[in-house]
Measured scan of single mutants.
Amino acid sequence: DATRCSICQKTGEVLHEVSNGSVVHRLCSDSCFSKFRANK
């Protein structure tokens, strides 16, 4: 199964994995990581 970025939905390489309870968010770049943090 292809890994997909939680923010931009791009498949491919994942730079960050953030687990939040039972959910793991995968983020492909620092910019997506920043957006993820801002959205929480």
Score class of each variant (00 low, 15 high):
Asp1Phe: 07
Asp1Ser: 11
Ala2Phe: 15
Ala2Gly: 08
Ala2Ser: 15
Ala2Ile: 15
Ala2Pro: 06
Ala2Thr: 15
Ala2Gln: 15
Thr3Lys: 15
Thr3Met: 15
Thr3Trp: 10
Thr3His: 11
Arg4Thr: 09
Arg4Cys: 12
Arg4Gln: 03
Cys5Gln: 00
Cys5Arg: 00
Cys5His: 03
Cys5Trp: 00
Ser6Cys: 02
Ser6Thr: 14
Ser6Trp: 08
Ser6Asp: 05
Ser6Ile: 12
Ile7Thr: 07
Ile7Asn: 15
Ile7His: 06
Ile7Trp: 07
Ile7Val: 11
Ile7Arg: 06
Cys8Gly: 00
Cys8Ala: 00
Cys8Arg: 01
Cys8Glu: 01
Cys8Leu: 01
Gln9Ser: 09
Gln9Met: 09
Gln9Ile: 02
Gln9Phe: 10
Gln9Lys: 11
Gln9Trp: 06
Gln9Arg: 05
Lys10Arg: 10
Lys10Thr: 05
Lys10His: 00
Lys10Trp: 03
Thr11Trp: 02
Thr11Asn: 09
Thr11Ile: 07
Thr11Leu: 09
Thr11Ala: 05
Gly12Arg: 08
Gly12Met: 10
Gly12Phe: 04
Glu13Val: 05
Glu13Asn: 07
Glu13Met: 10
Val14Gln: 08
Val14His: 01
Leu15Ile: 12
Leu15Pro: 11
Leu15Glu: 06
Leu15Val: 11
Leu15Ala: 08
His16Ser: 05
His16Ala: 04
His16Lys: 08
His16Pro: 02
His16Phe: 07
His16Met: 02
His16Trp: 00
Glu17Leu: 01
Glu17Cys: 04
Glu17Asn: 05
Glu17Trp: 00
Glu17Tyr: 00
Glu17Gln: 09
Val18Ser: 08
Val18Leu: 08
Val18Gln: 06
Val18Tyr: 03
Ser19Ala: 07
Ser19Gln: 13
Ser19Arg: 10
Ser19Pro: 13
Ser19Lys: 15
Ser19Gly: 09
Asn20Val: 05
Asn20Asp: 15
Asn20Thr: 13
Gly21Phe: 04
Gly21Ile: 00
Gly21Lys: 07
Gly21Leu: 05
Gly21Asn: 02
Gly21Ala: 06
Ser22Gly: 12
Ser22Trp: 03
Ser22Val: 02
Ser22Arg: 09
Ser22His: 11
Ser22Ala: 09
Val23Arg: 12
Val23Gly: 12
Val23Met: 14
Val23Phe: 12
Val23Gln: 15
Val24Trp: 05
Val24Ile: 10
Val24Gln: 13
His25Ser: 09
His25Cys: 01
His25Asp: 10
His25Pro: 04
His25Ile: 07
His25Glu: 15
Arg26Gln: 14
Arg26Gly: 09
Arg26Cys: 05
Arg26His: 10
Arg26Asn: 07
Arg26Ala: 12
Arg26Ile: 08
Arg26Tyr: 04
Leu27Gly: 05
Leu27His: 04
Cys28Gly: 02
Cys28Met: 01
Cys28Phe: 00
Cys28Val: 01
Cys28Lys: 01
Cys28Glu: 02
Ser29Thr: 01
Ser29Gln: 03
Ser29Trp: 01
Ser29Ala: 04
Ser29Arg: 01
Asp30His: 03
Asp30Gln: 10
Asp30Met: 05
Asp30Glu: 11
Asp30Asn: 01
Ser31Tyr: 11
Ser31Gln: 13
Ser31Arg: 13
Ser31Trp: 07
Ser31Met: 12
Cys32Met: 02
Cys32Thr: 02
Cys32Ser: 02
Cys32Trp: 00
Cys32Asp: 05
Phe33Met: 15
Phe33Leu: 15
Phe33Cys: 09
Phe33Thr: 10
Ser34Ile: 09
Ser34Tyr: 00
Ser34Gly: 14
Ser34Cys: 01
Ser34Ala: 15
Lys35Phe: 13
Lys35Pro: 03
Lys35Tyr: 08
Lys35Leu: 09
Lys35Asp: 13
Phe36Tyr: 06
Phe36Gly: 07
Phe36Asp: 10
Arg37Met: 12
Arg37Ala: 12
Arg37Phe: 03
Arg37His: 14
Ala38Thr: 08
Ala38Leu: 06
Ala38His: 02
Ala38Cys: 02
Ala38Ile: 07
Ala38Met: 11
Asn39Lys: 15
Asn39Pro: 13
Asn39Ala: 12
Asn39Arg: 14
Asn39Ile: 12
Asn39Asp: 06
Asn39Thr: 14
Lys40Gly: 15
Lys40Tyr: 10
